[in-house]
């Protein structure tokens, strides 16, 4: 073995070592970065604008509306405003008349307003519907299944879903008449 060869071997060994060390360090760095990032970010999966709206089917309890149940996927081709509300929620109460006002007009344009009620007593809901003369479908989510599915925290929460089933806008909190009209326009089927 010549001196050059020894030197060559040495170099190779050194290079190998460097590669090994670099790989180990990179792996460790990735692991550390992953640990830090996942810890800092919120783990809950929520549906945001851009996601497609998950399907559900619920019983319809508004006696002024003739549907007995509604499945979201059946409304493909129409724009859908999906509103989560409850009788004990003051901002919900405030936006209900706006929704009722715009409902017939937009229904003709192919936009359906459906609301998911989170109360547990039908009596209370019936009284509320009568008080505001609501005619749009009110779906009862007694076991919080759809609420869980959409991971609703504050109420009211409203999703505006386009004709392809994609969420265009998510609003947490109450809506004004102007804003409501604006968003409804956005999801009109073209």
């Amino acid at each position: 073995m010549g001196l050059d060869q020894i030197r060559e071997n040495k170099k190779k060994k050194k290079k190998k070592r460097l590669i090994f060390r670099s790989i180990v360090l990179i792996l460790l760095l990735v692991a550390v970065a992953y640990a830090l990032l996942t810890n800092l970010s919120d783990k809950k999966t929520t549906y945001e604008a851009g996601d497609s709206a998950p399907d559900f089917k619920l019983e319809q309890i508004n006696s002024a509306n003739n549907q007995s149940s509604i499945q979201l996927s059946d409304l493909k081709g129409k724009g859908v405003m999906l509103n989560f509300w409850a009788t004990y929620c003051k901002p919900c109460e405030k936006e209900m008349p706006y929704m009722q006002k715009l409902y017939p007009k937009y229904k003709d344009k192919g936009v359906e307003i459906i609301t998911v009620n989170l109360d547990s007593n039908k009596l209370v809901v019936d009284r509320f519907i009568n008080k505001f003369n609501l005619t749009f479908p009110v779906l009862a989510d007694r076991q919080d299944q759809v609420r869980e599915l959409y991971n609703i925290v504050p109420i009211p929460s409203t999703f505006f879903i386009d004709s392809k089933g994609k969420i265009v806008k998510k609003v947490e909190g109450g809506l004004t008449l102007d804003k409501l009209a604006g968003y409804l326009q956005d999801i009109e089927p073209k």
Partner: peptide, 22 residues
Amino acid sequence: VENYYPEYYLDEEDKIPRSKSK
């Protein structure tokens, strides 16, 4: 039962009975 308030309170703003929750 004309009306039922599960967790009753009197709203200070408009002086009508309301419920805080279900």
